[in-house]
Design a protein around this nucleic acid. Sequence first.
DNA 1: CTGGTAATAGGAATCGTTACTAATACCTGA
DNA 2: TCAGGTATTAGTAACGATTCCTATTACCAG
Lengths: 140, 140
Amino acid sequence: MSNYEPLQMTRSRRAILRELSSAEHHPTADEVYQRVRRTIPRISLATVYRNLDILTRHGMIRTLADADGQRRYDATLEDHCHVRCEVCGRVDDVHVVPLEAVERSITDASGYSISGYSLSFAGVCPRCAGGGRRGAEDAS
Amino acid sequence: MSNYEPLQMTRSRRAILRELSSAEHHPTADEVYQRVRRTIPRISLATVYRNLDILTRHGMIRTLADADGQRRYDATLEDHCHVRCEVCGRVDDVHVVPLEAVERSITDASGYSISGYSLSFAGVCPRCAGGGRRGAEDAS
DNA sequence: CTGGTAATAGGAATCGTTACTAATACCTGA
DNA sequence: TCAGGTATTAGTAACGATTCCTATTACCAG
């Protein structure tokens, strides 16, 4: 799956990577696009998508599958999990016990050779839970 | 999130549920559609989508977010996890240690109130690993 | 500089999903 | 049994996220 050919660091890629690293939650492709546009106004949305894909295949970022169809991107590479607020859609990081033992048991039970996992929890974030409906920008 | 009003079991819903329960891997909406069409030839794809959504909101099935944009559906309700083959896209079940302890620690650490989780592993299934490229119907 | 390759902008095309609307099925009470 | 009201449906148009296409541009090696 991964493709570790040398990858030239173009201006677009550097900018995308920078925005992704500085974002405090995990943005969608369009959010990355909007941010990068402040630096490179003529960048194309297609370029953003293509590079997010390339960076993922090169193991430099991660692509997250979101329950509502949109993908989100993550510059943190160490194994970690996500919590997604069911009210506002925000996605945060959580650091959790390593799951190597679980991986091994899956390999034994299913025959799959495991290369990674994605563990995400759903719940309500403190912003949305604590009184009122604040923080629920894009609630369904 | 869930909606537990009484739900009338129409012919479509019964058929969708039946196909989902008898499927050995987790089908996409379109795969469910193709299967149900053998029984109800005039059923609409929109009906399939609507009912998959309704059944999910009533807690009768689960909707899985797939890494490649498509949703998959799951009639197994007990807590369990998934393995997805990175070669052919197939998704299988795995039964794994309960994660209540992890949920508690996340609640403590992040302040989220957790209502559920989704743990999925990625790897290569035995079909795709064992010799040749067999089983890789829709490899990218 | 020059030629060749990789990356890009811009926009059209694709594909999964949802919204809309008129027609139909289903329930409830008389 | 029937009438009236509500939920569900088929069919299709619309939508939004993502990908594809192509001419142009940036980059690198010689």
